[in-house]
Design a protein around this nucleic acid. Structure first.
Lengths: 95, 95
DNA sequence: ATTGCTGTCGATTGACACCGTACAAACAGA
DNA sequence: TCTGTTTGTACGGTGTCAATCGACAGCAAT
C-alpha cells in the first residue's frame, strides 16, 4: 500500500523525472537552478523537498507544489509513526 | 476562499481547542506535554505545527496528524505564493 | 598526463522547534 | 494591600535540517 510505505519523493525525481529524460544530476540541478549537491542529496533520499524545491520541481517537470509537498508529507508521516506510541499527552477531548 | 487565505493552524488550536474547553495556554501546554512558550508561540501564530506537535494535538484534541499537518502545509503554501514569480528554472517537460 | 564532467564527502551557515529561566503586566482571592 | 496564577515576551542554548562551498576520487576523451 502506498499509505503504509510511501516512496521517498527523491526517488520520484530520480525515476520519473531525470531518468526518462536522460538527465544527469548535474544537468538536472542546472535546469532547476540549484547546486549539484542539493539535487544529489534529494535523489539519493538524503534530503527532503523544501517549499522552494517544490516550486522548482513543479515548474521544471510539471505537477504542482502541493503534490510534491504532499508526497514529502506522506513520507515523513509514515517514517514517524513510531511517535504514535512514544508521545504521551493528557487526553482532553474524546479519543 | 479558504484556499487563498488559509487560517493559521495556531488559530484553530486557540479558537477551536483551548477556548471551547476553557483551557489556559499554561494548562493546555501541560496536557500536551510541551513547554508553555511552545504552545504560546503556536497559538499566537509565531510557530508552525511540527510533526511531533501534530501527534500531540491529535492525541489530545482529536483529529489526525495528517489533518493538522495538512493545515500547516496549506498555510505555508499560501504564504509562499510569491515564490511562484521569483523562482526561475529551465522548463523541461510540458508546462 | 592533462583536461573536463561527474558523484560524493566534510564543514559551515542559516532557519526553526523546543527547552529552561526570568521579568513585567494583568487579574482574582484572602 | 498582599499573594498567587496566568500570560506575553525576551535571552541563552540544543538539536535538526536544507543549502552552500571547497575538496576529493572516478572516468572518458585527447
Amino acid at each position: 500500500m502506498a499509505m503504509k510505505n510511501p516512496v521517498h519523493p527523491g526517488a520520484i525525481v530520480r525515476e520519473d523525472c531525470l531518468k526518462p529524460l536522460g538527465l544527469s544530476v548535474t544537468e538536472g540541478a542546472r535546469r532547476l537552478g540549484v547546486g549539484r549537491q542539493t539535487l544529489s542529496n534529494l535523489v539519493n533520499e538524503r534530503a527532503s523537498i523544501s517549499i522552494e524545491m517544490a516550486y522548482r520541481l513543479s515548474k521544471a517537470f510539471g505537477s504542482t507544489p502541493e503534490t510534491w509537498l504532499g508526497m514529502q508529507l506522506a513520507f515523513d508521516l509514515a517514517r514517524s509513526r513510531h511517535l504514535e506510541r512514544t508521545i504521551e499527552v493528557a487526553r482532553i477531548a474524546a479519543g
